[in-house]
């Protein structure tokens, strides 16, 4: 995947591993870890295909906009690739 990624803004029901406060936000892949069985299927006792897990770094400004406590502080979160799409490169 590209370095810049956007978290899907979907709001499904059920067990979900992309935190709501990061949905629709764009960050940078800090590192890609490895595939893990999809927890969103494991949670229901279903067979789970492996899904690539990325650590995505967001700035506080990326996430909270003008309300950020300190815009350059960062949040790193693990996001499954099923929740990510490539974002246009920053200008």
């Amino acid at each position: 995947m590209s370095a810049r990624v956007t978290v899907s803004a979907r709001m499904p029901i059920g067990h979900v591993r992309a935190p709501a406060y990061l949905r629709g936000k764009t960050g940078t892949i800090e590192r890609s870890i490895r595939p893990f069985p999809d927890p969103e299927r494991l949670a229901y006792g279903q067979p789970a295909t492996p899904v690539m897990l990325h650590r995505v770094r967001f700035t506080m400004a990326d996430v909270w906009g003008p309300a950020a406590e300190n815009p350059d502080d960062t949040i790193d979160a693990e996001i499954y690739e099923t929740w990510l799409s490539e974002a246009p490169d920053a200008p």
């Binding site: 709001m11 029901i13 935190p19 709501a20 309300a67």
Partner: peptide, 18 residues
């Protein structure tokens, strides 16, 4: 903290930023 309303479908345990 200034709060924006939580969107429909937001679940209670998903606490980040609330």
């Amino acid at each position: 903290m200034t709060q924006t309303p939580l969107p429909p479908g937001h679940r209670w345990h998903d606490m980040g930023g609330t």
